[in-house]
Amino acid sequence: MSSDLHSLSDVDRLIHEPSRSIILAILSAVEVADFLYLQRETGLTKGNLSVHLSKLEEGGYVNIEKTYRGKIPLTLCRLTTQGRKAFDIYCKQLKQFVKNTKE
């Protein structure tokens, strides 16, 4: 494998999964999003989304806050500083890979 293409093998495997990269893309554009919004935008089932969010939380990329809106439980998700940095690096690596592959 040439060094130009090697960049893809270095990407963060926690992010390099379609569902999780989309979750992070959405969260990178907002301050905070609730579970319902993420579910609608990603098209994932509640169970799947819950699993992916837990993995991202374990990795320190997402902060999950359980709160209430009136009497209704509400799950708020936000990107941590570490998560934002990791996602920025991931995007740069992908762009570099695409650029190298096309050249």
Binding site: A29, V30, E31, V32, A33, D34, F35, L36, Y37, L38, Q39, R40, E41, R69, L74, L76
Partner: peptide, 12 residues
């Protein structure tokens, strides 16, 4: 809106 399609707060 938030009840139907979820809540987000925009990033400053």
């Amino acid at each position: 809106t938030f009840r139907r399609t979820g809540y987000i707060s925009m990033r400053k």
